[in-house]
């Protein structure tokens, strides 16, 4: 089974998030790392390929500036190759535009399954995998916590508000994986060394036969109008525990009628 995994490279957790004051989109310059929530779909993909007894994992990713550091992390885990669409035109791309670029990349691949995280850790839009599925006319199972291959289809468990549902799905398909559902392997030293020489194909928007206009670059179809200071809660009392802070907590719970007053 050949699996394509959508991975996003995002600013590392140490870089504070910031908005560009002009375009009012998130600043994504500087070193980028693999979005931790994507490491679960990479892991899931590697396991499914192992389980199916053949095939490999291809990473697909979109950035404006050619950054590959985050891809190397996933290659070191065991993905065979990466395809990166890098184009300054893609700066400020919205979720539907991203889905269009990813769908065009999937069409060039021979993938039985496309895996993705449920949403990125910087933008949180959370619609890209299913938008991509619609563009490809594929079935999709979103918010999945477990996937197995059974013959020519998948058996999945999809998160619901009340618990989960068991969903079967024919291939090809898009599956979005919730974080924390598999233990992610650490890249071995051998894996890290091998990743340096794994192929990373870099394409432009034009290579995919797409036109920038149709992608809805920032401002073309939706725009951030303003950023304003939110009304803040009045600041509370901060105490340092010297052994009896629990009593203060109990007092507060009593004063808010969460627990009764008498002892």
């Amino acid at each position: 089974m050949n699996v394509a995994v959508c991975v996003k490279q995002i600013p590392s957790a140490e870089t504070p998030l910031a908005f560009d004051p002009t375009s009012k989109t998130l600043v994504r310059t500087g070193p980028l790392v693999l979005d931790e929530s994507d490491s679960f779909s990479v892991e899931m993909a590697l396991r499914l390929v192992e389980q199916s007894g053949g095939g490999d994992v291809t990473l697909i990713s979109v950035v404006p500036d050619g950054e590959t550091q985050g891809l190397r992390t996933a290659l070191a885990m065991g993905a065979a190759r990466a395809v990166l669409v890098s184009d300054p035109l893609l700066s400020g791309l919205d979720a539907l535009g991203t889905a269009k670029v990813l769908a065009a990349m999937v069409r060039r691949l021979d993938a039985d399954l496309v895996l993705a995280g449920t949403e990125s850790s910087d933008g949180y839009t959370g619609t890209v995998p299913v938008q991509m599925a619609e563009l490809l006319n594929y079935p999709a199972v979103s918010f999945v916590r477990h996937v197995e291959i059974s013959g020519d289809h998948l058996v999945t468990e999809r998160q619901t508000e009340e618990g989960f549902e068991e969903v079967t799905c024919p291939l090809p398909a898009v599956v979005s994986v919730t974080a924390g559902v598999v233990e992610v392997r650490y890249p071995s030293f051998k894996g890290i060394m091998a990743a340096k020489s794994k192929p990373v194909e870099v394409l432009t928007v034009a290579d995919l036969g797409l036109e920038a206009d149709s992608l809805g670059i920032a401002g073309a179809r939706q725009e951030v109008i303003a950023l304003e200071q939110a009304e803040l809660r009045p600041s509370g009392e901060i105490i340092t525990d010297s052994g009896d802070a629990f009593e203060t907590i109990v007092e507060r719970l009593v004063s808010w009628n969460i627990i009764s007053e008498h002892q």
Binding site: N137, P139, A140, G163, E165, E166, V167, T168, A173
Partner: peptide, 10 residues
Amino acid sequence: SDGARVVSRH
């Protein structure tokens, strides 16, 4: 696109 089937709800 409607190929997936809900087998059971838990």
